[in-house]
Design a protein around this nucleic acid. Structure first.
Length: 282
DNA sequence: AAAATACACAACCGCATTATA
DNA sequence: TTATAATGCGGTTGTGTATTT
């Protein structure tokens, strides 16, 4: 026994809406509202459509003050942050974005953001870069970096409870250990024609540069005062938490991650690492 | 140039929740 | 209070367009 259909599918039109249908629905709703009932609306408005179809068309497309496409970087960041915290609760995420519908956010995630952030997948091992990112400034040039580290993360013990959407406290997320650190000397020449991506390749042993999670790398030189000043025990002589990682290992479970400001870049980086794990599992 | 494939987004389906009689 | 209908939601599919073969 299947579920009783909400309307007679042989009597209603399906598929894309025509401009004429849009006009009828829009005019009716602007004049009368829904009268508290979507199911009976199409008949009253003179549409051969299912009530649910009318509701969806209005809420996702015809309703005034809603935006389509052109997601800003700020909106992307909000979506990513919230997704990491609450998972695929699109209506909640959309409610935090002015003029966006849950359907739009969901589509945007599925077509753009998911791919962008789940792409890094390399046999459970990924190299992380240190020192050089997309933004090279003039003070980086002609400077000898005596501690040009790169390393590998061991993901073998990480695929567990972090998949639970109810888990929002990141200190419950198992994170990888740094299994290998290497160092070399490197000098970036001022007259170098290398762009930032090439510099990155020069400094980091990526077999597939395309597998590199760019936003993760981009943030690796951030100095995070929240983390620096937290009770996590980071050395005050470290200029970034990645130096701390390189010095003390990559076992975040040893640190008090849950006490870190959720708005900090450090916290977001931790969540981004977690997101990579999800990519590996998918 | 045509066919195949990829992509973006609109729309649908069925289940869960909420409202109503 | 409970049965039923309406609504809301998220996964999934459908459709039109762009790109590749």
């Amino acid at each position: 026994m299947g579920r009783a259909p909400c309307c007679d599918k042989t009597k209603v039109k399906r598929g894309p809406w025509s401009p004429e249908e849009d006009n009828i629905l829009k005019n009716y709703l602007e004049k009368n509202g829904t009268s508290g009932n979507w199911i009976s609306l199409p008949q009253k408005a003179g549409l051969r459509r299912c009530g649910k179809s009318c509701r969806l068309r209005w809420l996702n497309y015809l309703r005034p003050d809603i935006k389509h496409g052109g997601f800003t970087e700020e909106e992307d960041n909000i979506i990513l942050t919230l997704y990491r915290q609450i998972g695929s609760r699109w209506s909640v995420i959309a409610a935090n974005l002015s003029g966006r519908t849950d359907n739009d956010v969901k589509n945007h995630w599925n077509t753009k953001l998911k791919k962008k952030h789940f792409a890094a997948q390399n046999n459970n091992l990924i190299n992380i870069g240190y020192n050089f990112t997309n933004n090279i400034n003039s003070s980086d040039l002609n400077h000898n970096y005596s501690t040009n580290y790169y390393g590998k993360l061991d993901y073998s013990n990480t695929f567990t409870s972090h998949m639970d959407p109810n888990v929002t406290n990141c200190d419950q997320f198992p994170l990888p250990t740094l299994m290998e650190i290497q160092g070399n000397d490197a000098t970036i020449q001022e007259d170098s024609s290398l762009d930032s991506c090439q510099i990155l390749q020069k400094c980091v042993t990526f077999e597939e540069i395309s597998m590199c999670p760019t936003t993760f790398l981009k943030n690796t030189i951030n100095t995070d005062s929240n983390y620096m000043n937290s009770s996590s025990g980071i050395s005050s002589s470290s200029s970034s938490y990645y130096e701390d990682i390189l010095e003390n290992g990559f076992d975040f479970q040893e640190n008090d991650i849950g006490g870190v400001d959720p708005n900090s870049s450090y916290y977001n980086n931790i969540l981004e690492i977690d997101q990579l794990f999800k990519g590996f599992e998918n």
